[in-house]
Structures are given as C-alpha cells and as structure tokens.
Nucleic acid binder design. Sequence first.
DNA 1: TTGCATTGGTTTCATTTGAAACTATTATAG
DNA 2: CTATAATAGTTTCAAATGAAACCAATGCAA
Lengths: 174, 174
Amino acid sequence: MQPVSVPRPSPSADDMPGEDEPFALERFLPYRLSVLTNTMSRAFARMYGERFGLSIPEWRVMAVLGRFAPLSANEVAERTAMDKVRVSRAVARLIKTNVVDRTTDATDRRRSALRLSRTGRRMHDAIVPMAREIEAALLAGLTPAERETLDRLVTKLMDQAVQLYRTKAKKAED
Amino acid sequence: MQPVSVPRPSPSADDMPGEDEPFALERFLPYRLSVLTNTMSRAFARMYGERFGLSIPEWRVMAVLGRFAPLSANEVAERTAMDKVRVSRAVARLIKTNVVDRTTDATDRRRSALRLSRTGRRMHDAIVPMAREIEAALLAGLTPAERETLDRLVTKLMDQAVQLYRTKAKKAED
DNA sequence: TTGCATTGGTTTCATTTGAAACTATTATAG
DNA sequence: CTATAATAGTTTCAAATGAAACCAATGCAA
C-alpha cells in the first residue's frame, strides 16, 4: 500500500466551488470523503484483521448479530448495508471458523437463523471496546457540539446521496 | 447491486457511545461514513461510467492533469491519493483511449510526463460542471455555514485518521 | 391441486484491487 | 569508473467484489 500522506486542501476554504475556477480535486467533497473513508477503513481492517483475523464485512455481521440475533441473511444485509453476496460470503467464513452458528428457520426453510456462537460472543465483546476506542481517537479533536453537528450533517448527506443514487439510476433506466 | 436503503440511526442521538450499552453499528461513525461514501461513489461511478466510459480512478487522473499537467505518474499518485499501481492502470487505459498523452521526461528517462490530449481536455471540461452539479446536489440541504463546518470537521477527521493509520501500522511492526 | 412468480441464499464469472516481484534508469558509495 | 542502492513505473498473482445465473422453498392465482 502507498504511504498515507494525503494532499491537503488549500487553506483558503472559499465557500462555493467557483464556477470558472480550475477544478480542484483536493477540495471536492466526494473525493475528500472517499480518501477519509479509505484511510479509516484501512486502519480498522488492520485492527480487525491482525488481532482477530476478520475482514470488515465479517465484523459487521458479528456486530449486528451481537445485538439482534437471530437474524436471517437478508436481515443481516439490511442492517449492515451490504449486498447479499457479501453477506453470504462473510457468513460462510464465520461459520467455518465457528464464530457464527446457523440453523434453518422453523417456519420457512429458505431462511437461515444466524447467531453468534459462544466463541463469537467472546470475540464480539473483546472487539467492541477496541472499536469504540478507535472511534474515540478519530473524534478526539472535536468538541461534543461538533460531534453532534457532524452526526447531523452526515445524516443529511446520506439522505442526499441516496436520493442522488436513485435519480441517477432512474435516468439511466429511461 | 443491492437496493440503496440505508438503515437509519435511531432518533435518539446520544452524545457518547455509552460504555456498556449494546454496540450499535448504525451509530458507529466509521460505518456511517463508509456507507455514505460508498453510496456517493456509486452515484459518481455511474455518471462517469455511463456518460464518459470512465472509472473513478481514471477521472481522478484526468482531474489533476487538467489542472497541473505535465505530471509524472508519481505526482499523479500523490495528488489523487491513489497508489502507483492504480495510477499506472488508469493511465494505461487513458492513453489507449487517447485521453492522455505520455512523453518521457527529458532529464530523467524513468519518469513520464503526462498531460491531457485535446480530446481529454474537452472531456475534462465537459465533466467538471457535471461533477460540480452532483456535489451541489449533495450539499443542497446544508446552509453555507454548515458547509464550512463540514469542511473543517472533515479536515480534522482526515488528520486523525492518518494518525490512527500510522500508529496502528507502528504497533503492527513492533 | 398445479403451474408461475417471488423470495432466500449460493455459485459462477468477469472485473478490480493491492502487495510483491520485476524491469529500467538514475544516484551514490567505495 | 564500478557496484550497490534507490527510484519510476509495470506486471504478476492471489484475494475481494458484484452482477447475473442459479437452486431451493414458499406464495399465489387459476
């Protein structure tokens, strides 16, 4: 992997992306968020991976099962915002490593019923504090008020992004 | 791909991720940012892809060349926060499609000198307004003040993320 | 019932990705 | 000057990814 040294946005944080100014990638929000997220994800991937032999998808599955089990694969997919292929694969590996137990739903034999095994629960409970620690470190520089604001803004952006994704999809289908 | 319908954080936006409360993935900042970024990236990928036959890495290369050419591959890598493998491949495709011209640096024959071709420039100039439009749509719900705050907070997070990545890397090497 | 559409989930295949190995060129130590 | 190290960039190989095809079980309409 490349050394993490991210190009900094120019200090002049002008409001609007001036209409005819040259396009500045390093000030472009989608780009910045992508870089931020990738850096973050790598840090987490490293932690989950080295300490527990987990990928991020696997950890996500564990996280939701830790809270809501039993869940079907589809329910896991919804709660983790992953597609069913990823869930299927993550679950397969977690079963093979005895982290997750799978039974079939009694009333609908298509559905599975997934839950953490005893081992899985122990891992989960060991990981959670570390994850929280990293999140805390990430947010270390922000005041409580700023955190709240960030939370709110991210929610707004998520809404808009979904909108955007849908409309772009629509246009494509026409 | 899975339908984009993101699980919403519970309305109670409590400040700190309570120590012994169950771990709530949907309130976990790294997760939320990842979901946001992926949704956004897919929207962009679709636009670049359908309208111009470009991937995101390819567009990033075009964007920095549009502003700073000539650049070497390494310089492109720095400015796009991509690793050299990705840059190499993106550039290769852009050359094949006559979007980018490559010559070799006169004073150092290892280095390339990359710049947009005439065609590439036209594409670039056509894409920029669309990219700005999407960004604007994304930010539509935010006041100018909120945008400034967002900008500031994202910068802080990026700094922390890099720190984090580094320290985690260090620990791993010890 | 019996067919047909739907849903839950897995597998296949092609593409993308990144780490490590590799080639070519330049820099530097002896 | 060599020889060794370092740098620029490409290629190789294995793993991750996602769309589409697929299999199995259920729902539903005739």
